[in-house]
């Protein structure tokens, strides 16, 4: 019984963590290059809508996913244009992007689909062999493809950020853009790549809700997840593994509070719901000694020959 419970909670946590992982790793990539994007939630909503709509039209969640990625890329491009080319204040552009995505996704949903519908999104795809492993098989290997993708993204992102020239350029652009520029790194281009990539991942994050985990679309269905994702970037100290730790902590506590309520444990639901937020802060505060520095040029526009 206890075993089954723990398996249930762990499986639940992994599902809950999926959208956060995509969005937070995307955000971390953008921030490492020096761009703070607070518009993640808006991109997620646009990704969730287009993914849903295309899946509804075609019946192929894979096409829906592509559409969500393309939408995410366009939203990322918009953000990059405003914050990199036009050098706008990043925090505020992000809020603008969020409102734009929130409004537009709702508007388009109302105009095209109009009412709540369900789609058949990505089905569960237990990995042959691995899913048979007792306990771990059920927790880790019995999900739908987008869940695996989110967890595969962690080592992939780590590799790209730490072991490839692109990763190096990216961090240089965020750490010391002037020096990077003098070494021949095209800072503007690198930031564009990073922000668009972040947009694509946020788009997938949205699609993971609308065509994999929930298979519905509703206005504002992300309910502020994008902002939590931004917070998780700080929790993770801009490292994919740290982001994973943060996303899993937050989601596990969330899964536990859901489970407690489902079991009928008599605590006021509001306190149960508060737990993930309180515990995330407390855990981070208890690690006060860690030495992590934000990318030095985060939130600072770059201008060649500028000040």
């Amino acid at each position: 019984m206890i075993g089954a419970t723990l398996v249930g909670i762990a499986t639940s946590a992994i599902r809950l963590a999926t959208p956060y992982l995509y969005a937070a790793i995307g955000e971390a990539i953008g921030q490492l290059s020096g761009v703070l994007n607070l518009g993640v939630d808006g991109i997620m909503l646009m990704g969730a809508f287009t993914g849903f709509y295309v899946t509804l039209l075609t019946g192929h969640p894979a096409l829906g996913l592509l559409a969500a990625m393309a939408t995410g890329a366009s939203m990322g491009l918009l953000m990059a244009f405003i914050s990199v080319t036009l050098q706008a204040e990043q925090g505020i552009s992000g809020i603008g992007l969020y409102l734009f995505g929130l409004g537009l996704s709702t508007l388009l949903f109302g105009m095209t689909v109009g009412t709540v519908k369900t789609v058949s999104g990505f089905p569960q795809a237990p990995i042959p062999g691995l899913s048979r492993i007792p306990i771990l098989g059920e927790i880790l290997f019995s999900h739908n493809p987008l869940v695996y993708g989110a967890f595969a993204l962690v080592p992939l992102a780590w590799f790209v950020l730490n072991k490839t020239p692109l990763g190096l350029k990216l961090r240089a652009a965020g750490q010391n853009p002037l020096a990077a520029d003098s070494l021949g790194v095209d800072v503007i281009r690198v930031r564009y790549v990073a922000v668009v990539l972040g947009g694509v991942l946020s788009g997938i994050a949205g699609a993971s809700l609308s065509i994999a985990l929930l298979n519905v679309f509703q206005q504002n269905m992300t309910n502020g997840m994008g902002f939590i994702a931004v917070a998780l970037v700080y929790f993770g100290g801009w490292r994919p593994l740290g982001v994973l730790a943060g996303a899993m902590l937050f989601s596990t506590v969330n899964a536990i509070q859901v489970w407690l309520q489902v079991q009928g444990v008599k605590i006021p639901s509001d306190f149960a719901l508060m737990m993930p937020y309180v515990i995330t802060i407390l855990v981070l505060a208890s690690m006060a000694k860690r030495r992590i520095h934000a990318p030095a040029a985060l939130n600072k526009p770059f201008e060649r020959g500028g000040e």
């Binding site: 639940s12 959208p19 985990l213 992300t222 309910n223 309520q261 719901l273």
Partner: peptide, 21 residues
């Protein structure tokens, strides 16, 4: 058992509550 998810719009949490049930 009846659970309250603290929101009228959090589709994901409603779904997770259903799965946990």
């Amino acid at each position: 058992n009846y659970t309250f998810i603290g929101s009228y719009s959090d589709v994901a949490l409603a779904s997770e509550a259903a799965r946990t049930f």
